[in-house]
Amino acid sequence: MPVAGVDIGSLTAKAVVLQGREVLSTSLTQTGHNSRVAGRRALDMALDRMGLDEGSLGFIVATGYGRTAADFAGERITEITCHARGANRTHPEARTVIDLGGQDSKAIAIDERGKVLDFVMNDKCSAGTGRFLEVMASALEVELDDLGSLSLESTSPASISSVCTVFAESEVVSRVAEGAPKVDIIAGIHQAIASRIYAMAARIPTNEALIITGGVARNIGVVRALEQKFDTRIVVPEMPQHMGALGAAIIAGEHHE
């Protein structure tokens, strides 16, 4: 019997439907102002794609900040545990998960079974999060999705010293005024984020087997900057945004058994 994991994040809600080890379907939708509705919508979208309905599911686990509102779920688990389990499923060799989400960033140390050993979070400021990049993209008048590829064109990244969204925005504006090329400014932003994440992750044991999850993982510029900082290759899974939902679905599967 299929099971589902629903991850209701601050910006997007995601669902994964799982049968055994096989991912049957996924979905992604904006969270908006109502977590419960968003979670349900994500679930329905994923089910629709397979022509399934909720009754055909063996168990549902909810995760993410909106999980408490997910009354349709049989259990609620934190996204830290879920990201760890998801990452462990797709990349069993991974021992450090860096999750860069919409509104916070985390580094999670895990063991060979995907159990959380330790974690750190930055939830006090938006540095390194999707929200931060959104603000930067709009300050630079480029598309969010283009930030990554643009930054790879840079030859001499501008120096952005602040990772506070408000200060960095004004720094970006002054770099623009100084005539620095956009690509260099974007590369500078990514480096600033990478330094910040690196400093945060230093509080827990990290090793070379790094995997990055969350929406920001789709930004190749941030990934490259992190690789430089950590001096190692970082794995980007196929569906970085769905790792939390995948982990939730895996736990749902265990419940169902």
């Binding site: 688990i77 934190t78 996204e79």
Partner: peptide
């Protein structure tokens, strides 16, 4: 847990819940 003993302006309940539950799960 990051907070302040009386100044609730620097505290986030949702984020603390996240940390506490993740910690206990681990």
């Amino acid at each position: 847990i990051e907070a302040d003993m009386t100044d609730s302006r620097v505290y986030s309940e949702a984020q603390t819940r996240e940390r506490v539950e993740a910690f206990i799960e681990s």
